[in-house]
Amino acid sequence: MNAYTTMQQMLEMADDVRRAFGEGDPGGLYPPVDIRATEAEVVLVAELPGASRDDLVIEVEGRHLTLRGEKPGPAEAADATPVHRERRYGKFERTFELNFEVNREAIAADFRDGVLTVRLPKMEAARPRRIEVTGG
């Protein structure tokens, strides 16, 4: 036991404590997403590190957006022994309800650096309209 081991143990303990309280862990919600809407579009950003574009399926049905796919497990050599596992692998599916119609023809999706960005333009009728108030 020396000062270095003590520090290492504290760093690891701090990690364990935060994991125990669920920080940094999306729990049942996988993959974690951000969803932002502007007047013209809805942008969904999902984190799927280690997935490949071919593993991802995006479906829009009515006002529901479904994101599904499978994140392949690590391709491990025969002599590999897992010592510690926190990363999540396997099938996932999440459905989101949108509170407006989107233009399905114009949906664009981009996947890079493990981040999926889906842009869903709102239908013209769903965009806010500003009405001039006139008076006399």
């Binding site: 280690g50 690590p74 990363r87």
Partner: peptide, 22 residues
């Protein structure tokens, strides 16, 4: 933020992988 981490041991090396999307 605690990015998830895997540690694997092989006969000749250790491999650590960390998810850092974006």
């Amino acid at each position: 933020w605690v990015p998830p981490l895997d540690l694997t041991e092989r006969s000749d090396a250790f491999e650590v992988s960390v998810e850092l999307p974006g």
